[in-house]
Simulated scan of single mutants.
Amino acid sequence: MRFFEAFTGRENEEYDPRGPLFDRSLVVLVFLLLALCLVMVYGASIYIGDLKMNDPGFFIKKQLAFIAAGLLAAAGIMLIPVNFWYRSGRLILPVLALGLCALPLVVGSSVKGASRWINLGLFNFQPSELVKLVWIIFVAGYIQRHHEAISKVKVFIFPFLFFIPFATLLYMQRDFGSIVVLLGITFGMLFVAGGGLAVVIVSSFAAGLFLLAAIITNPYRIGRIVSYMDPWKDAENTGYQLTMGLMAYGRGGAEGQGIGNSVIKMNYIPEPHTDFIMAIWGEDAGFAGVSLVILLEFLLIAKICMLGFTAMRS
């Protein structure tokens, strides 16, 4: 039981203001995933690092630098009082995020027809990733202010009205995936906060119609959906990456080919260390390695949900 308590925590305990400002088991899970991530990146990037940068360890060094920067940023954010996020998340942060979201359309770099990134020299920055964090803060603050009336349609629907300018900018950047993610985040948070099943169903139907229209009006998105349903139908074109990914999983079997021994990453699939890193990991570590990643992610999500429900009760 003590082993599982290390990950699930003991939420019934009283909060001790003299204790740490973070949950220890949550930090453990994050560091386990970070360590596993380094192994995955190393195995998937050896070939492409040597081919493009003449350094097999180039991308693992880059990943270590980003992890260090992220940990420093996390340590700094922990020092900021929660009230700051509550106040600024009401208007200031969303407006700043909206302006940041518009930047790729002005100074962004285009990659494969999509203008989602800003070139900062050492790396490309995608503003929509930061927008997701700001949006969570905004919706959380909105729920806190209106939690008693969240089941009313006019209260429930406001975040979606405020979401329209974000969705418009993301649509212009051809970042359809971020729109879907942000809508999912909004629905999920409002439903957990007590939005009511009927309101959620109606809102989901309206959002579904919008997404369907966006898909139908763009043949590229239709092609992506068709290739997802049956990648082998056009394995040499729209289904190429998916079929290569499936072949990587098949080669991995139960135990995998060994870290760094993937063959699919060798010019058979583009960006093996980013977009399709999970498929390469499946080939390297097999079913066992993929199951380990899924287990750690499940524990992380379960822990976050437990902490969220604890915060709601307090």
Score class of each variant (00 low, 15 high):
E283R: 00
V226K: 12
I60Y: 06
A254Q: 07
L33I: 02
S109F: 02
A149K: 09
F210T: 11
A65M: 02
N267W: 02
F287K: 09
M53I: 00
I264L: 03
G188V: 12
G89A: 07
I301W: 07
P270H: 00
V131S: 11
I80V: 09
M312A: 15
V111Y: 09
L246N: 05
K62A: 09
P231H: 00
S115Q: 15
F158E: 01
T274N: 14
E148H: 02
L34P: 04
G250A: 01
M278I: 01
N267P: 06
G76T: 09
L100A: 12
A206S: 10
D16Q: 03
Q173I: 04
F58D: 11
I259G: 01
D23C: 08
W117Q: 05
F160H: 05
I215F: 01
T238W: 09
G256N: 00
G282C: 06
F31E: 09
L34A: 03
T186P: 01
I143D: 13
L105Y: 14
T274A: 13
P94R: 10
I67V: 12
E13L: 13
G19S: 14
G57E: 15
G9E: 12
L71D: 08
A279W: 00
A167R: 02
F309Y: 07
Y228L: 14
R90W: 08
V82W: 06
V30Q: 05
I222N: 15
D175S: 00
F58H: 14
L93K: 05
P165F: 12
A207S: 13
I264T: 06
R10G: 15
K303H: 02
L33F: 04
K265A: 02
L307E: 14
S203G: 13
T8R: 14
Y86T: 04
